[in-house]
Design a protein around this nucleic acid. Structure first.
Lengths: 223, 223
DNA sequence: CCTATATTGCGAACGTCGTTCGCGGTTAGA
DNA sequence: TCTAACCGCGAACGACGTTCGCAATATAGG
């Protein structure tokens, strides 16, 4: 592969195959990604260091650079590997909004089950095949709508952002320190925080938000 | 101050003042935050290392720990210092949705002008006085609405998330490498990407999204 | 006034990190 | 057979966050 030195070519996904010369590689990208995901599931993305991942595979850090040009590329690999677990099948007779809500909830549950994704996705600048498959599913659901491609792309981008937003608030149990709050200066905030238990978001807040956003952006009445 | 060793008390904002014993501190938190913001504006949040910030102030890294318990606390300081530049005054006769849209656009422009905020905010778990002031403004705008405090809090949280989402997409000019895209496998995505210039989001997409979200979550017809 | 105590700035160090370099060994093409 | 490409790996580099201990300094209490 020899990616470490020369490899500032295209992204991992469109990298030329290895030559046939030397010994065959001892590891596969899928195994490397799986080892990294194992560490991330246990200790968050911070636990995914090149040394830790290589140790998980009983090798050394420098060996990893035969397969991956940088840690960010390894994160790209992890993201796409995790998104391989995303499945979505349209149901006959389902309206596009209902299908997208269902797709959004499946996506969110995937983010929630693997919270490190929320930290890894912003880094990634090279969407892998499974990420593209997710986009394709979204576009498929709204294919019949009479909107410009750009509008559809924007809507899907916002959809993804809203999903990550809700997944993030579900993953972080609001360990916020309000030590700076002065009841005199912030009366409304004080009454809200003391009046009711902060708690988790309303159960249907996610679906309502999705419907509000997509309905507002793609519904035929808008424009 | 002696924060580095004993300082695992409350957050920076609710920290006991320094005693009167020793020599008076040579630096102020505001100056430290300003120096860090200067570095972040120039080179992103990655340029804000304890050594770099201390060098900016002509001192050493260990000195910083007299003022700040950790790098994350320094980031909290930076965020609140940047949010000090946020101003918002309600206009008489303005409806709540219009006011929130105006507030949202002011917030977004602040995020866009200082993109490191988007990386620093997720870290911060201790909102400073200026952050609380922002929340207070939001709650003020919807004070007259007949919604439960929890619903209002949720809506403000979603509002903030949407603002950051749009600020992020405006800050990162879509340097995405689509090298993995196979036209056969992803026909819709291919047609969208080749058919139109990716470009920036529609001009009014932000406002329309804000209105869709807040209208859907807080309007009297919903619920 | 004198002394104990608290506080400051700082040099040095520790462990970890991402990444690079060069070596010896291995395989396939010329 | 020889050469060029490829592999795994040990060692190192520079940077990072953070801790520790020391000399200097200023106040509080007697």
């Amino acid at each position: 592969m020899t990616v470490g030195q020369q490899g500032r070519g295209p992204s991992i996904w469109a990298r030329p195959q290895r030559g046939t010369r030397g010994p065959s590689p001892e590891y596969r990208l899928a195994d490397i990604a799986a080892a990294a995901i194992r560490l991330a599931s246990a200790g968050g993305l911070a636990a995914v260091s090149m040394r830790a991942v290589s140790a998980e595979l009983d090798t050394t850090a420098s060996t990893l650079y035969r397969y991956v040009a940088s840690r960010d590329e390894l994160l790209d690999l992890m993201v796409d590997n995790a998104l391989a677990g995303f499945v979505h099948t349209p149901r006959s007779g389902e309206d596009w909004l209902g299908e997208l809500v269902r797709l959004a909830e499946a996506t969110r549950s995937l983010y929630v089950s693997q919270p490190w994704l929320l930290d890894a996705v912003p880094t990634g600048s090279a969407p892998g095949p499974n990420t593209l498959r997710w986009f394709e599913h979204c576009l498929q659901a709204i294919a019949a709508l009479d909107r410009t491609p750009l509008q559809k792309m924007e809507a899907v981008g916002v959809l993804n952002g809203v999903i990550m937003l809700f997944a993030r608030s579900a993953a972080a149990p609001t360990a916020i320190d309000f030590g700076a709050m002065d009841p005199a200066r912030h009366p409304l905030l004080t009454s809200v925080l003391t009046g009711t238990a902060p708690g988790l978001p309303t159960a249907d807040l996610f679906e309502r938000t999705i419907r509000a956003v997509l309905g507002g952006l793609l519904d035929d009445r808008a424009g």
